[in-house]
Amino acid sequence: MENMIEIKNISKSYHVVKKGEGIKGALKGLVKKEVKVIPAVSNLNFNIKKGEIVGFIGPNGAGKSTTIKMMSGILTPSSGEILIGGKNVKTHRKEVVQNIGVVFGQRSQLNWDLRLGESFELLRHIYRIDKTSFDEMIDTMDEILGIKELQDKPVRQMSLGQRVKGDLVAAMLHSPDVLFLDEPTIGLDISSKYALRKFVKEINEKRGTTIILTTHDLGDIEQLCSRLIIINNGKLVEDGNLEEIVDDIAPYKTLVVEYYDEQIPQHEKCEIISTEGNVAKYRFFKKEITAAKLIEDLGKQKAIKDVSIEEASIDDIIRIAYEGR
């Protein structure tokens, strides 16, 4: 399948004025400015195919939002280039942004003082959407999110959940091929989160929209993302589907075996990480032996009362990826 987004060796650094401490430093800053260059993203490379749902994750300050903003034409990279649908974002900004939708969970593109419907009407003119496709889109969105009952409500009177729904519809009005969701579930209650996930799945399935989302919610990742890109300190750390990353970071499982007495048997293909009375924990590598075989071998040596298998949780995996191995 063709690449929807191509990120070619992009870097972005910010110039920040360094301020001295206390009054002395502040006064010094008035006369002589020390500019510090802070790299936000460095040498990032990846491609995203049409129709993928990609979780773009990383710890706070990793450069996720900066990258999203560069992809959506808001920030320009210091070096490197970004192609969306084959077009360079920097040189063809207007054409590119006509084909993408962006939702920032932390700020709204809806107009605070206008009713939701008026905000949509303004967007209809901004993106030059003809009336029929506009109405069709509102109908489709109404089926997924139930937006019509909110049309006459001023945005300032909406709850966060309603506002995010409004923002999702606003981002989809011009039927973009690419949708960026920057922490869309932040602060949402469970049912709003559920509605958002349903929305993401449906538009991806029905319209083939490519979706890139940043999130700190592991539920979003597990339920939505076919692929994860993990960045930290502005660099790419992991790229692949969830299982691959799990296999890569935690290629082992832990087998907990309870015996009838305290004599614990051993096995050459695994190591005992702890014993407690008649319970032993064995760590084994998935590639070397299967859990069934291991249980069978151990059972031949000693009678087994109970077994359970522990896998590294996504939580742990992500944490390990963030903290670096």
Partner: peptide, 24 residues
């Protein structure tokens, strides 16, 4: 159909911005 529709309707984005701002 779609192309026809787009031709029938002329968009003036900034006029719409102007109108909405008056409402605001």
């Amino acid at each position: 159909e779609c192309v026809k529709n787009q031709k029938n309707e002329k968009f003036n984005t900034y006029l719409q911005v102007y109108k909405m701002q008056i409402i605001r």
